[in-house]
């Protein structure tokens, strides 16, 4: 999906993050770059768009009132538009080709390109200076107001981007203004944190997924990592040997001192199957299971997702992704690594 125009609503949705998402984090090179771009966009100031195609008009108002179930007679009686309709006048509608440039677009595009693919709107504040009058054409002007972040949110690491739109009337006076804020985030399957306010899929109670792993003190670190969006590989604290699946004692040096590394999240298909039959509880067939070889030198089993089954092959490059199977269980899975 294309990024929404600044004045349309960002849909609460997520897309898979690009593989090669550069490291973010406060003070990182990427963080500095994003803030520099934000400063530049802010410095552009207010950019005016074209006047609305339709003047404020009775049919659109009537249609809007009908749809909202709003029976307030004041608007048409007084020849003005409902205040909350302000944004409607300058919506691009189906004429996507007339989408106008705004200082917001570059910022959002850069966030998307650097892995902050998820988007959710967080605030919409409108102030109405005077009613928009029938016959009047409104002209929007947009300015980028700032970028805040990176912030750790329940949806993932992200940046809040804010912009303001002012609508000018026929007399070039401000009719209304709006502050709009979105969170652009790196999607991650949420861990065991409290259900975030803005996590659409999180609030839908899911059927408990029937295929649960047994976990004990030797394997708990792995599943804790998965909940944090990390693929952890056991490492012997004494001889350094990496091992998956993990176990209580290092087979190389007898040490029971264990730690783990966080894998790069990249892998290559070593072998795979496409399961057709019989039906598997909690799964829709066909589905792909693969033995994935990690650059760290161990193998791990997981599903390949976001890929047609007939496109899977040995040697294919993958990146780890994390999927919530129900309200508790997250499984590490694998998606094709884009080239």
């Amino acid at each position: 999906m294309t990024e929404p125009a600044p004045m349309t609503e960002p849909a609460p949705m997520t897309e898979p993050a690009p593989t090669t998402a550069p490291a973010a984090g406060p003070g990182s090179a990427l963080d500095r770059e994003l803030h520099e771009l934000a400063d530049k966009q802010v410095a552009l100031g207010e950019m005016r768009g074209s006047p609305s195609v339709n003047p404020v008009n009775e049919p659109m108002i009537r249609h809007w009132l009908d749809a909202m179930g709003d029976t307030n007679p004041a608007y048409l009686d007084q020849g003005v538009a409902p205040p909350a309709m302000i944004q409607v006048w300058t919506m691009p509608g189906l004429r996507r080709d007339v989408k106008e440039r705004s200082p917001v677009d570059d910022m959002i595009a850069r966030l998307t390109d650097t892995g902050f693919t998820g988007v959710v709107a967080t605030n919409c504040e409108q102030t109405y200076h005077r009613p928009a009058r029938l016959g009047e054409r409104l002209t929007p002007a947009t300015r980028f107001s700032g970028l805040v972040g990176p912030k750790q949110t329940a949806l993932g690491e992200g940046y809040f981007a804010t912009w303001n739109v002012t609508w000018y009337g026929d007399g070039d006076d401000p009719v209304a203004e709006m502050m709009f804020r979105i969170l652009k985030f790196r999607p991650r399957q949420r861990a065991s944190e409290k259900a975030p306010e803005k996590a659409p899929e999180r609030q839908e109670p899911k059927q408990p997924y029937p295929l649960r792993p047994a976990v004990n003190e030797d394997t708990a670190f792995f599943w804790e990592g998965v909940r944090k969006g990390e693929l952890r590989i056991q490492r012997c604290s004494d001889c350094g040997e990496l091992r998956h699946p993990p176990g209580p004692v290092c087979p190389s040096c007898r040490s029971a001192n264990r730690t783990h590394i966080v894998s790069s999240g990249e892998g290559v298909v070593y072998s795979y199957v496409v399961h057709h039959h019989p039906p598997v509880p909690g799964r829709e067939t066909p589905f792909v299971v693969a033995v994935v070889e990690l650059p760290e030198g161990v193998r791990i089993v997981g599903n390949i997702v976001d890929c047609p089954t007939d496109a899977v092959g040995i040697g294919m490059s993958l990146r780890a992704t994390y999927r919530a199977m129900d309200d508790e269980l997250i499984l590490p899975m694998w998606a094709p690594r884009e080239t």
């Binding site: 004041a74 919409c124 102030t127």
Partner: peptide
């Protein structure tokens, strides 16, 4: 109908 709306500030939550 006599009321005049001056400002609406909304924090958006679940769909």
């Amino acid at each position: 109908p006599g009321a005049v709306i001056r400002r609406i500030n909304v924090k958006l939550g679940v769909p």
